[in-house]
Design a protein around this nucleic acid. Structure first.
Lengths: 203, 203
DNA sequence: CGAGTGATTGACTTAGATCAATGACCGTGG
DNA sequence: CCACGGTCATTGATCTAAGTCAATCACTCG
């Protein structure tokens, strides 16, 4: 339900303690495709990208992970990494060693369940975000975001970050977002109150 | 790696056999938000939508599941459904009962692992598709698709369905896709060979 | 043999990207 | 304490890529 890529709360302390923190310089490679998989990572600070490089050198970004997000979970179940990970900015990551995680998942079925639940929730949230991107009109995309993220009263949406960040989440330029938001407010559909948006009427 | 939402291969026969198939008429509701969660579904045929309805009656689509895809996995870990599911077309779904699935996941750690691995792969694939939608230019979006989905030789992409379906996957009108593909071919970047695209040079 | 759908291409329109500029804030270093 | 550099918020002007409407042709199917 929450869009938050709520990272690693499912991890028992036992595993969290064996995590290995590593600091990356901007541009530095964390792992390469083909490297033996050591486990999955959590980005503690900065930004790390997963990249697939084709033989002509062109690269395609598979994921851009920022602080709090998690990286390469699937590598837990694979012996090698299938893409490159490189730091886009200076960054700090935490490695959760494969063997430790897997054996813990196996030993404690509660942890296994929590892990699966977290992944299932992520799948749900990702599908929702993807579905939103299928909406062509900026206004309807915003409406989708608002109704999906409305609080319990169904009328109040708490903005998590800056408007620019929201624009990125929606796949709009920030200018376009400002404009549409302004129009929606002018037409009485919403009301901005600081970091909150009130949904008033709907057309 | 494969973009396929490869559904239920992880399920042991034991569970597959207790699945309950159900036929839905177009427009029929499979479950409502707040209903006690019975398990998750696989869409065998037709199309089913997950919908969140806000109090003013506006609805936001959270997911559109077509044949072969899976629905509401997260409900395995929740006591009630959190949205409505309604058939967009006539449809056939298969219900995997929660209790049976959960106990099997718990009993057989191999199954649990396979389930988690499937979810992790789905998360990866979804993130990749979402990342692609961040690319504004149609051409670059197509390039992203091609490099991500290139076969082992890195130069051959097998199209899974029709070009129209690809257009939907890319979030483009099919006309736009035809045009850009035609231009790319004219400029020698790719070569279409039936249901295959050869990547020739890259600009 | 029509009906329905995909593939393709042309013409036209427009929503939203881009480029620009301004004002409000904010931390910070002298 | 204040000037300065940086980022966010906001709005205007302009441009274009891609959507929409439309028409044609090729196919498949009952």
């Amino acid at each position: 339900m929450t869009p938050a890529t709520s990272t690693t709360d499912w991890l028992p302390a036992a595993i969290r303690n064996v995590a290995i923190e590593r600091r990356l310089k901007s541009g530095q490679t964390l792992f390469h495709a083909g490297n033996r998989s050591l486990g999955f990572y959590e980005v503690v600070g900065g930004t790390v990208r997963l990249i697939r490089v084709d033989r002509s050198g062109r690269e395609a970004v598979l994921q851009t992970a920022v602080a709090g997000e998690t990286l390469a979970e699937a590598s837990l179940f694979s012996s090698v990494y299938h893409c490159d990970a490189v730091a886009l900015t200076e960054a700090v990551v935490r490695l959760y060693p494969k063997a430790a995680v897997l054996s813990e998942l196996q030993r404690d079925s509660e942890t296994g369940k929590a892990f699966a639940a977290m992944l299932a929730r992520q799948v749900m949230a990702l599908r929702t975000r993807l579905e939103r991107r299928n909406i062509y009109s900026a206004r309807d995309r915003i409406r989708h975001y608002l109704t999906v993220n409305a609080g319990a009263d169904g009328r109040t949406v708490a903005l998590t970050g800056t408007v620019k960040q929201l624009a990125a989440e929606l796949g709009l330029s920030h200018e376009a977002l400002y404009r549409v938001l302004a129009r929606m407010e002018a037409e009485g559909e919403i009301k901005k109150l600081g970091a909150t948006i009130k949904i008033k009427s709907m057309m």
